[in-house]
Design a binder for these strands. Sequence first.
DNA 1: GGACTATGAATGAAAG
DNA 2: CTTTCATTCATAGTCC
Lengths: 136, 136
Amino acid sequence: MTECLMSNRRWCPTPEQLMVLEELYRRGLRTPTAHQIQKITAHLSLYGNIQGKSVFYWFQNHKARDRQKLRNKHLFYQTLHFQGNSGMMMRQDWLMRSSYGHDSVMVMENLGPTPNQPLQTLQLFPLTSPAAANHP
Amino acid sequence: MTECLMSNRRWCPTPEQLMVLEELYRRGLRTPTAHQIQKITAHLSLYGNIQGKSVFYWFQNHKARDRQKLRNKHLFYQTLHFQGNSGMMMRQDWLMRSSYGHDSVMVMENLGPTPNQPLQTLQLFPLTSPAAANHP
DNA sequence: GGACTATGAATGAAAG
DNA sequence: CTTTCATTCATAGTCC
């Protein structure tokens, strides 16, 4: 039945809530705006406790996993040549990266301007270190 | 626990590192300069591998999510102020984007058309309601 | 009593 | 800065 008798440490969607969410998704909604989330949340509240973040997460996860599924399907077809034995994919061990290669980001390289430095006085370190409580 | 058994595709902060970062954050550091990032990174390296960009990202994310949370809290108090009878405000905190209208006014009350609307036209609700098959 | 799956929640990393 | 994406963590529910 899967009704969810969960100690509510996390949201457990009721069937009605799920139906609504899936319908919205089916209609093309993927990343609802804050306002949309509000409305959806309000509506879903009729069927049980729910927070906005749950709606937010639901869409995030659903979309992500949809995408993942597709990705894996592609990957599967394009590399399907091994593992023909059991006919069973054992698990989702397919950790395929989407080829992110760049490690650049170069965040650090803007050593230049840094126009104003408001909170310079704060001691970065020591932090873990003891007394030495010196001060400006 | 939660030591993070992650395959190192991305940085996984050790508890010590996290503690330091949080302490810095607590002390008011929000957007460290390149130089500060360097120092922090150097310090955190004592506890495990880490790159400057991780520190950078950490602050960005932490700050952003903090703010999101606050924003939502406000949103919550200013819009869902009904249901106050139970005496318990159920503390809704979550994250979401705010869709801040940077563009001037752009109120919704413009007459009808709203020429181009990506997927805005989709009816959130009614959902349970029938026909009304509108279209872009 | 574990293994496994699904899925809510979180967060590092980027993109915009 | 704000949003989004990808990956991971956590756990309820299920099966054996």
